[in-house]
Design a binder for these strands. Structure first.
Lengths: 187, 187
DNA sequence: ATAGTTTTACCGAACGGTCAGTAAAATTCT
DNA sequence: AGAATTTTACTGACCGTTCGGTAAAACTAT
C-alpha cells in the first residue's frame, strides 16, 4: 500500500516541531500524533519507541545542518573564505531553521547524561559534526590564517554555541564579528 | 513537630540537583522527595506546585550567581579590570557550581515559551542579571576600553552563553581569550 | 488472498496534586 | 506553674489524568 509514503516523514517533522517547542520530556506521543494528524499507535508502527523517534529526528536534523554547512564551503579554496563562509552558513541556518536550532539548544545539555545510552548516540552524531568544524579551524591555523594560540576544539565550541543562542540575524552578525576578531591572526 | 527548620532549604537543594541532572520535565516530584529524603506531600506543604518550586530554585540560583559575579567586581575601580574580573568570576562559578550551570543551560531555551507565564518570571530574573552585565560593557565602551562597534547586549549574550557551555576550566579560559581579543579596542 | 497501513480499544505505571489526620512545639489562659 | 488551646511540621492513602506502549481488528491497494 504505497498510498502515503510520506507518513513517516510527516511524523518526523511533527515530532521535530513538538520537540523544538517543549523539549523531549515536555512532549507526549499523543501530542506528536495530534500534530501529525495521525493516531498514536501509528507512530509505533514506524518507530519502536519515543527514544528512537527522537534519535531519528536528531539524526535527520544534523544531516540537514551538516549538508547546509559544508556543501557551500567546499566550493571555496581559500581557507580564510572557507571559514568565513561556514560562519555565515551557520548563522543562516540557525535563523531560518529555528526548529533545529531549538532542538540543539535544548538537548545538547543531555550529552553529559550517562544513565541512558540513547543519549550517547545523540551526542556522537553531534560530535562528528563538531569535529568537521574543528578540523577546518585546525587547517586554517596551519595556513596561518587563524591565531596559533587558539585551540581548534574550543574555537569550534565557541562558534557552535555562541552563534546559535539567538535567532535574530542582526545579533548573530554582531556576535560573529566579535568571535572573528578574536580568532584571526593579528597583523 | 518532629524535626526542626532547614527542611525547605533541603528540598530546594535536592530539587536543584535533580533539575540539573534531568531537566524540569525529566524529574518527578517523587524523585525530588526521594532525593531530599522527605515525603512527597511535604514538598507541597512548602511549595504550592512544581512550577513554583522550580521558580524558587531558579531565583535562589540566580541570586547566588549574581552575588558571586558582582561582589568582587565592585571592589575594582578600573573598568578594564572590572570586566576582566567579571569574566574570571563567571568561569569560576560555572566550573564549580555545575548544578547551576546545567540548570541555566537547560532551561534558558524556555525563555521563548509564552504558553505558561511561569516561564516569563524565570526569564525576567535572568534578564535582570544580563542587563547588569550589559551595563558594565556599555560603561566600558564609553571609557574607550571596549571597541565601540560592539553591541553591549550581544556581547553580554556571547559572554553568558559562550563561557557556560563547558565545565572544563581550561576550555573556558581559551574561549575567554578569544572573546576578549574580540572585545577590546584595537590599539 | 495477501501484504502493507491505519485505527480502535486497552493496559499498568507513573504523573502532579489533595486531604484527613497526627504528634509535637508554641502560645494563651488561669 | 500547669492545663487548655492553637499552630506548625509532617504522613499515608488516595484522586483523576496522562504517560509510553501493545494487541488485534479493520481498512486499502495490489
Amino acid at each position: 500500500m504505497r498510498k502515503k509514503i510520506n507518513t513517516k516523514q510527516k511524523i518526523i517533522e511533527a515530532a521535530r516541531k513538538s520537540f523544538a517547542e517543549k523539549g523531549y520530556n515536555g512532549v507526549s506521543m499523543s501530542e506528536i500524533a495530534k500534530e501529525a494528524k495521525v493516531k498514536k499507535a501509528l507512530i509505533y508502527y514506524y518507530f519502536p519507541s519515543k527514544e528512537e523517534l527522537f534519535y531519528e529526528v536528531w539524526h535527520y536534523s544534523m544531516d540537514e545542518l551538516e549538508t547546509h554547512l559544508f556543501n557551500e564551503v567546499e566550493n571555496e579554496n581559500m581557507y580564510l573564505k572557507k571559514l568565513k563562509k561556514l560562519l555565515k552558513s551557520y548563522i543562516d541556518f540557525m535563523t531560518n531553521k529555528t526548529e533545529v536550532q531549538r532542538i540543539i539548544l535544548r538537548e545538547r545539555v543531555n550529552f553529559s547524561r550517562t544513565d541512558q545510552d540513547s543519549w550517547k548516540r545523540v551526542k556522537d552524531r553531534y560530535m562528528s559534526l563538531r569535529e568537521r568544524v574543528s578540523n577546518l579551524i585546525e587547517e586554517s591555523k596551519n595556513l596561518e590564517v587563524i591565531d596559533s594560540n587558539v585551540d581548534s576544539n574550543d574555537a569550534a565550541d565557541l562558534i557552535l554555541n555562541g552563534l546559535s543562542s539567538s535567532n535574530d540575524p542582526r545579533s548573530l552578525e554582531n556576535i560573529r564579528e566579535i568571535i572573528w576578531r578574536g580568532l584571526v591572526k593579528n597583523e
